[in-house]
Design a protein around this nucleic acid. Structure first.
Lengths: 158, 158
DNA sequence: CAAGTATACGACCGCTGGAGTCCGAATTCA
DNA sequence: TGAATTCGGACTCCAGCGGTCGTATACTTG
């Protein structure tokens, strides 16, 4: 019902991969792409965008590639997705300032904006350092249960 | 970054409208569409799908239309969106059973599935009765702050 | 310096899926 | 019977995603 673009997916995967290899000074887009079996050219464009935002640094030339510019614990999934896909909101007619062509008729927008904010905060609280850790330890199950109860708390507020 | 389809939007708006007019035995798709300035034919198809699932009842013939079949407090935004858009997940390669073509390479999927669950639970806890109320009273601001703190709780768990 | 490797970036394209339309049939009320 | 309405399939239109290509540029190494 809600879809994340493949580009954002690839971006997160690539960042995770780089974070997992701190010993390498730079990893080429080609190498990362081969590791995940995704098109190299596409991944390169994604990494370029991440470089523009300052999440990643690019090294041209031989033995070049990309390296993290920020602490993995400081890179949230939100900013990655934002950098790649741009600002898209859950409600179709929601701009940065929340304008709607039919302000009076779209009374649904307010509660949906709340949902939008919830999703944003969740994504902001997930960092690529989390992705690296979860690949090894099995804390995922616990987190899911925690997540479920917190969801109920939101309900009770209504 | 995450988009809800217009159809789902329209469906929620229509259900809210019907819930706001309990005195009417049946509201035609045309009437609802005109109230919100949305294409009537499209809304009709949306309501048909909601009728199939049992959320709404259809009355053919003159003075026909649609009426709620369930208590507005028992209709969650989740089931409405699910009925209209079908099962779409945040990760592109996530089926009902969670299969992925590259199981080993897509290590990102687990944490994203958690996000997916979070969104689901939030949507399950929003009912169209909430939409009706929020259109009048100003409880939205409070709810947003509550939501923000609960998001932080999810963070702390990591 | 020259060759080779990598990023940088814009142009391009196929295609899926969302948004919306059209039309004929069935149903019901006046 | 006729008007209003739902029902449902088929259809068009088009934006945007996913992906490719080609060229320019930057850097490293021999």
């Amino acid at each position: 019902m809600l879809r994340l673009t493949k580009k954002a997916d690839y971006g997160l995967m690539a960042l995770k991969y780089i974070a997992e290899h701190p010993e390498a000074t730079a990893l080429s887009a080609k190498d990362i792409a081969e590791a995940y079996h995704i098109p190299a050219q596409l991944l390169a464009k994604i990494l370029q965008r991440l470089a523009k935002v300052g999440i990643v640094k690019s090294h041209a030339g031989m033995n070049g590639g990309y390296s993290l510019l920020k602490d993995p614990r400081k890179i949230s999934a939100f900013e990655v997705i934002f950098a790649i896909d741009g600002p898209l909101f859950i409600t179709s007619c929601f701009t940065h300032e929340g304008n709607c062509d039919l302000t009076n008729s779209c009374t649904i927008k307010e509660p949906l904006a709340r949902v939008n904010e919830t999703i944003s905060s969740v994504l902001k609280n997930i960092h690529i350092s989390d992705l690296v850790e979860e690949g090894r330890s099995r804390t995922v199950r616990e987190l899911i249960t925690i997540r479920a109860t917190s969801g109920e708390k939101i309900l009770q507020a209504t």
